[in-house]
Amino acid sequence: MDQTEDSALVEAVLSGDRDMYARLVNRYKRQMYNLAFRMTANSEVARDLAQETFVRAYANLHRYKLEKSFFNWLYTICINLTRNHLEKRHEILGENGDESATWEDANPSAEHRSPETQIIEQQNINGLEAALSALPEDLREAVVLRYIQELPFDTVANSMGVSLSAAKMRVYRGLEKMREVMTAQESFP
């Protein structure tokens, strides 16, 4: 992402050009929505959390330091909102059958693939999501940030407020735990 352009857009918004904020939203909405969805497994909650992220960011835009990464700043807001939500609701992925949504529910474009491909993909995705959902929140967050959101380890560590080695350990323990779950469920492809 172009940090210079982000800063220019933020300045435009702060000078009163509110519509320019739509460009920032469009630029990062997918990452925020996906992060919230992977942490909550609920498309409606994910939408609300991701939208709230952008609203909070707008309200506090004057606190954002232009020389820093806007993406990282948004990320911090989103992950904090998600943590708070999970703490409040005591949500654990997969346990709340009424609220949880599958990847297919949240991604209607999957319908365009062939039925065979969809079945195989869906089995793999379901197995992975079930294993992810079995993780404690701190390990899940570490795995989501590192391998689903593909953030570098130092950013994962910063986001989680832990040392680099602690972040690596959480990711490793998360992967190990997922491997155990998928092996037990015989869902390892």
Binding site: R30, Y33, N34, R38, R47, N124, I125, L128, I148
Partner: peptide, 12 residues
Amino acid sequence: DMARQLPSLDEP
């Protein structure tokens, strides 16, 4: 690798 390749979801 599987986690990396999880499909990106379309936002509403």
